[in-house]
């Protein structure tokens, strides 16, 4: 049975690596994002790397009125329908502190936008009784930190949403994987001081494919971030509030 993957936020580093891994498996790809020329480049690349088809689709997390058409189009294919969500935005916390209206955009990009898209996809998967959704959250969502608590809050919201969606779709035979990557070597982290144990997008993509194949529920990737976050979560609040980790 062939597969179709809707990749939301496809031009990000991890999404690109993931799309290529999918392409090598001969799937049909719907590559969603804002940067049309880049999406087209990626589509050509994925086709040459073995994708059955690859289509660039305009998507803006802040324009939900377009979502229905996007899902309808992907649902035309009779193959197993899947989605992987990589969108999110992380302006510097200091920029948000100076201009609180930025919060709305972060929440839309990282949480409510993708949630509204998945909300439209969910009934399709329920009806078909198959399919996998990979939702990429972040370790930043595990605890609010001084450095990026708005982004963290959005990702935490998204993780909670995914947990509920898993509960819902699991009953119908579809599956939801929540992924929490640690530091990944992407344009978002390039040149930021204090990065450590940085993983390559290719390694993350491989772990996503594995997690989807094995129907894992929540994964940290690379795996050791589960333990790092376990420690961070277990720091009592009266101490944590004084830290700037």
């Amino acid at each position: 049975m062939t597969e179709t993957w809707i990749i939301v936020g496809a031009t990000s580093s991890i999404a690109r690596a993931f799309a290529r891994s999918c392409a090598a498996r001969g799937v049909e790809l719907h590559l969603l994002g804002r940067d049309m020329p880049e999406l087209k480049r990626l589509a050509a690349d994925c086709t040459l790397r073995g994708a059955a088809s690859a289509k660039a689709v305009a998507f803006d997390a802040r324009k939900p009125e377009k979502f229905e058409d996007i899902i309808d189009d992907a649902a035309q294919s009779s193959s197993i329908l899947n989605a992987a969500v990589f969108v999110g935005s992380m302006p510097a916390q200091s920029a948000i502190d100076a201009n609180p209206s930025l919060i709305d955009g972060v929440i839309q990009d990282s949480f409510t936008g993708p949630a509204r898209l998945l909300q439209l996809l969910a009934p399709v998967l329920e009806e078909r009784g198959s399919g996998t959704i990979i939702g990429v959250g972040s370790v930043a969502g595990d605890r609010g930190r001084i450095g990026n608590y708005v982004y963290g809050a959005a990702k935490a919201g998204f993780a909670t949403y995914l947990s509920g969606l898993r509960n819902r779709l699991g009953r119908a035979g579809a599956h939801v994987v929540t992924v929490k990557p640690g530091f990944v070597d992407t344009a978002m982290t390039w040149g930021i001081e204090g990065m450590f144990l940085v993983a390559s997008p290719e390694d993350i993509a491989t772990s996503l494919i594995k997690a989807a194949d094995k129907k894992r529920n929540v994964i940290y990737t690379p795996f050791f971030w589960r333990y790092i976050m376990l420690i961070i979560r277990s720091i009592p609040e009266f101490i944590f509030k004084k830290l700037s980790v």
Binding site: T11, S13, D35, P37, E38, T186, A187, W190, G191, I192
Partner: peptide, 26 residues
């Protein structure tokens, strides 16, 4: 964003503190 990093030749005998950009889009 530019990343401060040491650039080394593969042989490692010559190095320089450098600033690197790594574009992911055209």
């Amino acid at each position: 964003r530019w990343k401060k990093d040491e650039l080394r030749g593969w042989g490692g005998a010559l190095t320089m503190e450098a600033e690197l950009a790594r574009p992911e889009r055209q």
